[in-house]
């Protein structure tokens, strides 16, 4: 609005005031998510150090509360902005997309953690999520403040297409967590455990084999979840593009990179068909796939401008 502010009428002044109010609530809720996720990480550390499963339950509860705050944050933005722009959905900038992914991470985490009792899964997830939110809250206001959507984004398609993409990112994020945990335990046992634990190694190593198998499956299952979601998201994007301007695919860098990421994950699923590629190699492959996902999500903004550029970090 800037220089034209003096010419605005009363109604838009009221909008500005209510926007200010909303951003204050938003700030509080974002901080709550950050603090709760950070606390959860601390509690998960206590669980490992003190070997008390009660801390694991507290950590899980904190993650659930963080998920609620995160949901509240997005709901606040939505409930205010929808009055200004009826087609609004909290996906108008980088910060909102981060919070959207994180709420999906929380949701999937809360389910998956009950299925797989993977050691360190809560700790690494909560720790990384806290870092992500911390970094996101440092974004400049132009990438944080809620904006009305530009015409090309005002559509139900946006809500479904981008939601699916971001939920798939959340699943792939958790597959990445599984993969790095796998690699951690694998190399710890390989490099440290035999020497340090000596005679106890046989028992310890056997426990680790079970852990590694579980983490390998966790990674695989998260890819199996993200893969169809990403396919669905990409395809809906193509259908939307066809509906909005008559072409499914235009090799826009974001489109191309999301296809590249999908291909990398397809390659992951196919290399797993070979037994010797499961485990360590597959975990490294999952890390590589996640790197390509990061390029799709963040890096593409530096490659070119297009419909999908939501904002550069710097």
């Amino acid at each position: 609005m800037g220089s034209d502010f003096g010419t605005l009428d009363h109604s838009s002044g009221a909008i500005a005031a209510s926007m200010h109010h909303m951003m204050a609530i938003d700030q509080v809720l974002t901080s709550a998510v950050l603090i709760l996720a950070g606390l959860a990480a601390v509690v998960f550390v206590l669980e490992i150090v003190l070997k008390k499963s009660m801390f694991g339950k507290i950590g899980y509860g904190l993650m659930a509360l963080a998920a609620l705050s995160n949901f509240g944050e997005l709901a606040t933005r939505y409930s205010y902005m929808v009055k200004i722009s009826p087609d609004y959905w909290p996906l108008s900038n980088l910060f909102e997309s981060v919070m959207y992914i994180v709420v999906a991470i929380f949701a999937i985490y809360l389910v998956v953690d009950r299925m797989f009792k993977a050691p360190g899964f809560g700790l690494v997830s909560s720790f990384l999520v806290a870092i992500i939110i911390g970094l996101a809250s440092l974004l400049p206001p132009r990438l944080k403040d809620a904006h009305p959507l530009v015409p090309s984004l005002q559509s139900y398609w946006l809500k479904v297409h981008v939601s699916l993409m971001l939920i798939s990112y959340a699943a792939f994020f958790l597959s990445f967590v599984g993969a790095i945990l796998y690699l951690f335990f694998h190399y710890r046992d390989r490099l440290i455990a035999p020497r340090a634990v000596g005679a106890m190694a046989a028992k310890g190593a056997k426990a680790s084999v079970a852990t590694l198998a579980m983490l390998d499956e966790l990674t695989y299952r998260m890819v199996l979840l993200g893969f169809p979601l990403l396919a669905f998201g990409i395809i809906l994007g193509g259908m939307w593009a066809n509906h909005a301007w008559g072409t499914y695919w235009s090799w826009d860098p974001k489109e191309t990179w999301s296809l590249i990421t999908w291909l990398f994950y397809a390659a992951y699923l196919h290399v797993r068909l070979q037994r010797e590629w499961r485990g360590t190699k597959a975990a490294w492959f999952a890390v590589l796939c996640f790197a390509s996902l990061l390029v799709t999500y963040l890096g593409v903004n530096y490659l070119a401008t297009g419909l999908h550029t939501y904002g550069k970090l710097f």
Binding site: W257, L259, I260, L263, F264, H270, A304
Partner: peptide, 15 residues
Amino acid sequence: VVLIVLIALGSIVGT
């Protein structure tokens, strides 16, 4: 797998 990875790498050139 080799073809999938080659197509992915070729696509990177295009971006």
